[in-house]
Nucleic acid binder design. Structure first.
Lengths: 333, 333
DNA sequence: GTGAAAGCGCTAACAT
DNA sequence: ATGTTAGCGCTTTCAC
């Protein structure tokens, strides 16, 4: 940097100012400096800059999920890459951590403490979301998405720098069930996700809202978001409620399993039984028949997370934003 | 850190030494220092450390792939998370970048130049592998995996700090085709990947090796690794070689498409036509019938990449390692 | 608008 | 084994 200053015939301070937006730098100096940079092939040292400015232009990207879902669940990846993309557009680097077990949990906690990142983005599938709250409590701007447990009706705590981005899964579920009913279905069962996950609970609640008085427990089977569990749940439902003519499934993957079970049982979809999924993941169009499902605006979620984080880093208060879902009509219902 | 030194009653230099392995530090001092650290809640500032030591304990993790494959291709993710995991075990942070187009390419290039990372891991699906060579040429220890084009029979260049980790796809293809032949198949067609990709070429070469004189062009159709292309290719093959009784497909996803086409054409699998895939991805067991395929040791690849990179950072020469594949027998052949 | 100077928090070479 | 010292490369007051 001294070289650049020398070549441009200015002081190091001016070069520094020129690099950071060029405020209070004359146009002539600006030109000379840029020329000098080109000539010398200069490139800033991020570590030195971070040390001096106390800003690292880096945010931690923390994925909380069991290893199995990491490789399998595409929505996870869309979120991940969406965040990386959005950050990159702001010239910010993402440092990636994965925490599936408690061991990594404490490890990450320590790592982040010393990492001096500007903020953290937490993408949580299973609720180690306490990580997010911990980070926020530790004073680092944090934005989480996914199933943050039981905060649904709490107002964001302005004391804590934790923002939340989620989708209105309950309303999404309602819209699908409403559609099923509207197209003449009478007995609408559901395959729910684990009650321990916020999204599992929300989607089940949406089904209940719409089905109302008909929401008897024998129309509910629970899976764990895997294809196999969806299959098993469908078999169970078919046995408990042979007269069902529709089923709302809390995830596309489980819906794929349900479809297979229905096929095996000789029920035609959608003629005999309508099937609705949730997520609009890749399987939704891979499956036969293609799946009517509820789409979550994954791309918007990731860009919104980044937007909120950047805002928080600049001092904005934390926020809680909820996106609506879209009903995607295909062949299965 | 001065606080810690004060509390422990030693100098800052000693604290620093204690932190980095405790060489040349008395046991008593060591104890005092650790106590002081606990008491003060001290945690090193990575930026300051990096600036002084010229080592960042961070490596760049670069994914080269079209956006579509990023979210879809699970092997990609397994590799990615495997690397993150392995790095984390060594206390190293991964800073993630995604480059799909040329725009990002130059952006990343600049970013990495100033990032002062200790090394780079390149996971390339489509061959922007020039990125890897460029990084290596720029003097940063680099390990790449995936389809690095046309280096197959070059010896690693010791001048360049670029290591390569790959699988022996050609032999993998041979083993599957050999198995098909061994189980009595006479006319073995193939659906190849794009000739522009190293793995596409290798898998096709393996098929040719085994089929030998029977390897006429009308038994070869080419896809682009998508399910749809596999379907189309199968339709084409069925038309060109109606008497085929086996087909080796260069990826599981394409094989899934082929299976659908065979089903539509009324051919039974494996009774009429045996089908073999490549990758052993999640679809291999999702599909009906489940897919006989060639498994690549993804987990080993990622740990080996990290091992090589760490070695290179410590001054080891670059290496080129090739892993064997496994034949996974299921229902389709 | 620009330069000079004082650090940011740490490591590493040297002296002891 | 430990203390001392000189930076690492940059930002940022503060005078001018």
């Amino acid at each position: 940097m001294d070289d650049v200053a020398a070549v441009a015939g200015v002081s190091r301070g001016t070069v520094s100012r020129a690099l950071r937006g060029g405020d209070k730098v004359s146009a002539a100096a600006m030109r000379a400096i840029h020329a000098a940079i080109k000539q010398t092939g200069y490139v800033v040292n991020r570590h030195a800059r971070s040390l001096a400015s106390r800003r690292s232009e880096t945010v931690a990207l923390v994925l909380c999920a069991p290893p199995a879902r990491l490789g399998e669940d595409p929505s996870f990846n869309i979120l991940l890459f969406g965040c990386v993309q959005a950050l990159s557009e702001h010239g910010i680097t993402a440092s990636l951590s994965v925490v599936s077990g408690d061991a990594e949990f404490t490890k990450i906690r320590e790592q982040l403490a010393g990492a001096h990142v500007d903020g953290a983005l937490v993408i949580a599938a299973h609720p180690i979301a306490s990580l997010a709250e911990e980070l926020a409590a530790g004073g680092i701007p944090t934005v989480a998405c996914g199933s943050v447990p039981c905060r649904s009706h709490r107002r964001p705590d302005p004391q804590q720098s934790l923002s939340l981005v989620s989708t209105d899964d309950q309303e999404g579920a309602r819209s699908l069930v409403r559609y099923l009913r509207g197209s003449g279905r009478r007995t609408i069962a559901t395959i729910a996700g684990p009650a321990s996950t916020a999204c599992g609970a929300a989607r089940l609640a949406g089904w209940q809202d719409e089905v109302g008085a008909d929401a008897s427990p024998h129309l509910v089977a629970t899976g764990d978001y895997t294809r196999a569990s969806g299959h098993a749940a469908m078999v169970e439902l078919l046995q408990r409620a042979p007269d069902l003519d529709a089923v709302f499934v809390a995830s596309d993957l489980m819906a794929a399993g349900a479809l297979a079970a229905l096929h095996a049982a000789g029920r035609r979809v959608p003629d005999d039984v309508a099937v609705g999924g949730f997520e609009d993941s890749a399987v939704a169009i891979t499956v036969q028949p293609t799946l009517t499902t509820v789409r979550r605006p994954l791309a918007r979620i990731s860009t919104e997370m980044v937007r909120l984080l950047l805002g928080q880093i600049d001092g904005d208060p934390p926020a809680e934003v909820v996106f609506p879902t879209d009903l995607v009509l295909r062949e299965s219902a």
